[in-house]
C-alpha cells in the first residue's frame, strides 16, 4: 500500500495534518461572521432590535438552543436523524480540506474538484435523512423537496465545475487556481460562475433554495429539530455556504492572486466577500419552488452551462 495521495506539481505545499484544526477554526469564524451578517440584515429588514441587536442575535440564539430540551417524536429513527443533522458540518469541513489557502493546503488531492463534488452530493443524503428520521409528515415532505431541488441543480453544478477544469487540464484545485494568471475564470466563464453560485446556495439549503426547510411546510426537514441538534444543523448550513464560497476562490476568482497582500489574505478576503454576497442573496429572492425550479434546471441552466463548457473547450483547444 503506497501513499494514497500522490503530489502534483502545482505550486502548493501540503501542511501537516495538525493544521486541519486551523482550517476548522477559520471555517468556524466564517460561520459566525455569516450568521452575524444575516442577523444584522434580518434586523434591518424587520425593523426589529436594530442592526447591533441583529449582529449579536446569533449568539443569543445559540445560547437558547443549547439550553433547550430535545424534542422527541414517536418512533423516530434517531440514528439516521442525528447523522443527517450533524453531517452537514462534517461535509463542509471535508470540503475545505482541498481548498488551498494561498500556497498551503491540507489535502493536495489530484482530483480535488471531484472531491468537492462528491461532498456536495453528500448533502442530498443528509438533508433527506434529517427529514426522514423525525418521522413527521412535514419533516418528510421537506426531505423529499430537497431531493427534488437536487435533481434540478446538481447536474448544472457539476458541469459548471467542469469548465475551469477543462482550461486548467487538471482536477487539482491548486492547478486550477494557478491556471488563471491574469484573467479570472469568473470573468470569461460567467455562466459557469453564476450556476456554481446557485449550486452553492442550493446545497447549503439557503435563500431561494430553502423550500426544503420552508415556512410553507412548517419548517420542513428541520421542523422537529430542537436544541443542540438544530444548532448543529444551522451551523452546518452556514459552514456549507462558507465552504462553497471558499472553493469558488481557487476555481473562479484566481485563488491567492492579488496585489500587496499575501496569497492567504487574498483567499480570505475573496471568500468573505463572496460569502457576504451569498448571505445577502437570501434577502433579495423569494423561494424557487421545487416544482417550478426542476424544469428551469433542466431546460435552461443545463443547456446554458453545457454551452459554456463547449465555448470554454473550444477556446482551450484554440489557445494550445
Amino acid at each position: 500500500m503506497a501513499d494514497p495521495m500522490p503530489m502534483t506539481d502545482a505550486p502548493i505545499t501540503t501542511v501537516a495534518p495538525g493544521w486541519a484544526i486551523a482550517a476548522l477554526a477559520i471555517l468556524g469564524v466564517l460561520v459566525v461572521a455569516a450568521a452575524m451578517l444575516d442577523g444584522a440584515l434580518a434586523a434591518r429588514a424587520g425593523g426589529g432590535p436594530g442592526t447591533v441587536g441583529g449582529l449579536v442575535r446569533p449568539f443569543g440564539e445559540a445560547a437558547r438552543l443549547m439550553r433547550q430540551r430535545r424534542r422527541t417524536t414517536v418512533e423516530a429513527d434517531r440514528l439516521l436523524w442525528r447523522i443527517g443533522g450533524a453531517g452537514l458540518l462534517v461535509t463542509a469541513a471535508l470540503m475545505v480540506t482541498v481548498v488551498p489557502l494561498g500556497e498551503w493546503t491540507i489535502f493536495d488531492l489530484d482530483v480535488g474538484v471531484m472531491w468537492f463534488n462528491a461532498m456536495d452530493v453528500m448533502v442530498w443524503a443528509l438533508v433527506w435523512l434529517t427529514g426522514w428520521g423525525a418521522n413527521s409528515a412535514h419533516s418528510l415532505v421537506g426531505g423529499y423537496r430537497f431531493l427534488a431541488h437536487g435533481l434540478g441543480y446538481e447536474l448544472p453544478l457539476m458541469f459548471a465545475l467542469v469548465a475551469p477544469a477543462i482550461v486548467a487540464e487538471s482536477l487539482n484545485v491548486g492547478a486550477v487556481a494557478a491556471a488563471q494568471e491574469g484573467l479570472w475564470f469568473a470573468v470569461w466563464m460567467p455562466v459557469a460562475f453564476l450556476v456554481y453560485l446557485l449550486g452553492v446556495a442550493a446545497f447549503s439549503v439557503w435563500g431561494p433554495f430553502a423550500p426544503a426547510i420552508g415556512t410553507d411546510v412548517a419548517g420542513g426537514a428541520r421542523a422537529e429539530l430542537s436544541g443542540v441538534d438544530r444548532l448543529v444543523f444551522e451551523a452546518g448550513r452556514y459552514a456549507l455556504l462558507a465552504a462553497g464560497a471558499a472553493f469558488a476562490v481557487p476555481m473562479f476568482l484566481g485563488g491567492g492572486a492579488g496585489p500587496l497582500l499575501p496569497g492567504w489574505a487574498w483567499v480570505l478576503v475573496k471568500t468573505v466577500a463572496l460569502l457576504a454576497v451569498l448571505v445577502w442573496l437570501r434577502r433579495r429572492l423569494p423561494a424557487f419552488r421545487p416544482d417550478k425550479f426542476m424544469e428551469v434546471g433542466w431546460m435552461l441552466l443545463l443547456p446554458a452551462v453545457l454551452l459554456q463548457d463547449l465555448v470554454v473547450a473550444v477556446v482551450a483547444v484554440w489557445r494550445s
Binding site: 415556512t215 421542523a223 422537529e224
Partner: peptide, 24 residues
Amino acid sequence: MDHGGHEGHEGHEGHEGMDHGSHE
C-alpha cells in the same frame, strides 16, 4: 442562528398543531 428564534417557534407550533394530529 439566522432567524432561528422565530422559526423555532414556528416549528414548535407547527408540531403541536399537525404532527400529533397525524397520529390522532
